[in-house]
Design a binder for these strands. Structure first.
Lengths: 175, 175
DNA sequence: GATTTTTAGTATGCATACATACTAAGATCG
DNA sequence: CGATCTTAGTATGTATGCATACTAAAAATC
């Protein structure tokens, strides 16, 4: 049945489906991201926590670098600064972070984590860690490692291609 | 300072950065999806075409299955039906598809591609194909194949975990 | 065949995600 | 030091992406 189609339109037949898009990198990456978001959201729901992936990433970065400004934060977790504005808004609205004023730059906001934010971070982080494994279901440990290595390699190489490249500001700064 | 952290929390130090999130599956997948979207958008921009990844996927699916309804379309490309409503709106607004009435079901819309849609599809498809390769930069051909196989395997396994699972309705239907 | 359940599509609301444009302020340069 | 350039943050607009709720119609059940 598929063999017949393969004779006529080879591009329509892949291992995973009929339409060519099913075998495209873009489609597969989007699907895995979709699964990743669903697993994250589901696990947070089970914990009774309202926290999105970006919000966790931002919280983690603010916690790591107290007083960080929004632009640096955006670069640190590879998001658009316009997007980060809203994320920071919601984190502050939940009382997880504070938006202070920067001493050096009157334009900039100095972000710090609150005790509530720290407590939530401590509480959810173990679950975030174990959840990473569930994202890559159907693979054995060796395959997971392999996939993670390939993802790291290609995201590193393609970093500047994205509209919001990752900027590791503290690289080489600290002693 | 970070060297000190490395001694205590080795998981904080990865090849790509200091923060633990940089090595997490969720983060890496999101980054690659971000790169994928940027490459797609940039290529379409060069062609002077206003078309998003979802819109292309929908167009491709409607073209493949003329008369498809929105719910089946949503399942066929793994999107939420609410999202697809808007996507179909915009495709129809651009004159790329038609939203007819279903003969069998008065609730359902029968979607068909227009000559303009077909022409656009024919024009962009070769570029969409070559663009897939650019998404996975920094990898050699063997690594790209390996990554695609792992992505296929894990998205297959995790399919039902996502909120909008892929449903291949025409599996076994065609001759 | 009437009731119940499911389903197709839409509406609404929230949260990314990013382009563009704008203001205010810091940085640079002549 | 004044003009220019750049940058931090915000505002606005578009497009996902999905939850929830709703209407209308089809399907299933009794």
């Amino acid at each position: 049945m598929y063999a017949y189609q393969r004779l006529i339109f080879p591009q329509w037949q892949t291992e995973t489906g009929v339409n060519e898009i099913y075998s495209m990198a873009g489609h597969l990456v989007r699907r895995l991201n979709q699964i990743s978001m669903a697993v994250f959201s589901e696990r947070m729901g089970e914990l009774g926590v309202e926290l999105t992936p970006v919000q966790y990433a931002a919280l983690s970065s603010i916690r790591e670098t107290p007083g960080i400004d929004q632009a640096t934060l955006a670069g640190a977790i590879a998001y658009d600064k316009a997007t980060i504005g809203g994320v920071v808004d919601r984190l502050a609205g939940k009382g997880l972070i504070l938006r202070g004023m920067s001493a050096r730059d009157r334009r900039a906001r100095a972000l710090t984590i609150t005790p509530e934010g720290e407590a939530l971070f401590q509480r959810v982080t173990p679950h975030i860690r174990t959840l990473q494994n569930d994202i890559l279901s159907g693979l054995d440990d060796a395959e997971k490692t392999q996939l993670l290595n390939l993802l790291r390699k290609t995201t590193d190489a393609g970093n500047t291609r994205s509209r919001a490249p990752l900027r590791r500001h503290n690289e080489g700064e600290s002693a």
